[in-house]
């Protein structure tokens, strides 16, 4: 884990700084938000994203879906994505939960919560984690539609979304360097 220099209150548990879970059960956004806030004296910003199962996708009405994954690689891929986010931005806590198994319309699929001293890092890191999760983490959705079951097709736009982090990462690095120089 990256060592961070700012003060931590005694209530901070370093083991919880990067929480990653792949699970069949639902999650409670309020409970996750509370974990990001709990005894967190250093952070002024929390940004979270939750992804849901929606009714219409790729032109068909969807009644539910099954999420398959690659056990072992999934956890490893998510850990790498979170580690990369910690390298790019001055984050304090990340909580990432992705569900697997059978889900229905309106169900929650994924949660990404990020805390940082300032909002820019929290917004960007949350976005970054989702963009990389969409293209690098081995999950596959199989939807149930009125025409039968079908595997969801990967979208070019998800792949293209990664290109913005090339520049953003460099900018973030430059900002860090600039901050160091000022000090």
């Amino acid at each position: 884990m990256k060592s961070l220099s700012f003060h931590r209150s005694p209530g901070d548990n370093r083991a919880d700084m990067k929480f990653i879970a792949v699970q069949t059960q639902d999650f409670d956004v309020a409970a996750e938000y509370a974990e990001l806030r709990k005894d967190n004296r250093s952070d002024g910003a929390i940004v979270f994203f939750s992804g849901l199962v929606r009714e219409m996708n790729q032109g068909s009405e969807v009644s539910g879906l099954t999420l398959e994954h690659y056990p072992g690689m999934t956890e490893k891929a998510l850990q790498q994505i979170v580690d990369q986010a910690f390298e790019r931005w001055p984050l304090n806590r990340v909580r990432l939960i992705h569900r697997i198994g059978t889900l229905t319309i309106t169900d929650q699929i994924v949660f990404v919560g990020v805390s940082s001293a300032h909002r820019e890092a929290a917004f960007e890191a949350c976005h970054f984690i989702m963009d990389f999760l969409k293209t690098r983490a081995p999950f596959w959705k199989k939807e149930v539609t009125e025409k039968g079951e079908r595997w969801v097709e990967a979208l070019d736009k998800d792949q293209q979304a990664l290109s913005k982090w090339q520049d953003a990462g460099e900018e973030a690095d430059t900002e860090k360097k600039a901050t160091k120089v000022e000090k």
Binding site: G51, H98, I109, L133, K134, A137, P138, F139
Partner: peptide
């Protein structure tokens, strides 16, 4: 070694 289609999670 594993082969699989492009991923579609999230």
């Amino acid at each position: 070694v594993a082969f699989f289609p492009p991923v579609t999670g999230g």
